[in-house]
Computed example of a mutant assay.
Amino acid sequence: MAERKASRTAVLVCQGRAVADGRLAVGRFSDPIAIELLTAPEREMVGTARSGVMPSGFGARLEYELLKGTSEILAARTVAIDDVVRDRGHPQLVILGAGLDARAWRMKELAEATVYEIDQPASQQEKRERLGDRAPLAAAVHFVPVDFAKDSLGTALEAAGHDATIPTTWIWEGVIPYLTPAQVAATTAVVGEHSAAGSRLILNYATTSRLNAFGRRAVQRLLTLAGRDNPMANEPFRSAWSPETLRELLSRSGFDVTVDVGLLAVAHDLDMSIIERTRFLGSGRIAVADRD
């Protein structure tokens, strides 16, 4: 089925960043653009979560907890990824499955970089409507519509002007768990084919966790029982990876993993007081792979 609008998961991620802005990892995490990309009802949910006051009603409480947990994940993984992007300062940045990502509009470090955002055509159209006439901080932003069921990522990148002869930073955030192992392998191969020496790939992935899988299913069922929107309804988890298996996959495409860290460790390094909700961070990891 063709996607008709931005995925609800993309909206949830944007809401999570908006909840975290100015509240979590202060001084390290900031995303003031996120709230501006949300509709009035979506902002209302953010306001409730930022208030720190548990709402009444079973359904409202579930949404509150989901957003609080999401904000913790997003603060940790965004800091980890942004730090790596700044470290290299490559002239090209490709964001795979960009959703409502606002890096090109909030990171001054991208002032001399060309950003290529890869996503489903309908999702990109809605994002552009939400952005309105807001100018990016990046030197240029190219929206590259790709229907992964029928389009070639490599061909689309080339048509958009991506130069495979100069270094590129690739961000693959919040996408891999929703892809099959075969889809992950195929995309990794394309990335390798379009990466010059010095390129860097930043991946966010999930390890196998029965507790997290059970918790995710439980939250979805409870949201449905409460008559609330389930943002994960159409995006089931399809793959989990061990650091060793992921390292082997990336090696076949010419990348060497230089960093592989758990989001919980990142959160602790940021002094985020989230001990009571570590289950939201336990299986998530960030890997950084370089191509010599």
Rank of each mutant, 00 (worst) to 15 (best):
V219D: 10
D271E: 12
A80M: 06
L250M: 13
P41L: 12
K5L: 09
A113Y: 06
G198L: 08
V53D: 10
Q125P: 01
H162C: 08
A159S: 12
Q125Y: 09
E109W: 06
E193H: 11
V79P: 04
Q92I: 00
A10Y: 01
N230L: 09
G192P: 06
I274K: 03
R210E: 13
L223K: 05
I81D: 00
A164G: 06
Q183F: 07
Q220H: 12
A159W: 03
E36K: 14
H142C: 07
Q183H: 13
T180D: 09
T208Y: 11
L93R: 00
D163F: 03
I274D: 00
A49S: 08
D31L: 02
A135Y: 06
R17S: 02
S123A: 15
D119I: 03
T187N: 11
I81M: 11
E42N: 09
G27R: 04
D260K: 09
R216K: 12
V115M: 02
E129M: 15
R217A: 14
A289P: 06
D83I: 08
R130S: 12
L270N: 02
D163A: 04
V257L: 07
A104W: 01
Q124A: 04
P145M: 01
T224Q: 10
M232F: 15
F143L: 10
V115F: 01
M1H: 12
R247Q: 14
E112Q: 10
R77L: 01
R217G: 07
A265D: 11
E117T: 02
V175T: 08
W241D: 06
Y116F: 15
F143E: 13
G132T: 05
A98T: 00
R252C: 07
R88Y: 15
L67I: 04
G154I: 05
L179G: 08
I73E: 09
R88V: 14
I73N: 07
R216F: 14
V13T: 12
A60E: 15
A185F: 08
L74E: 15
R8T: 09
K108N: 13
R221D: 09
S273R: 11
A240H: 10
S56R: 15
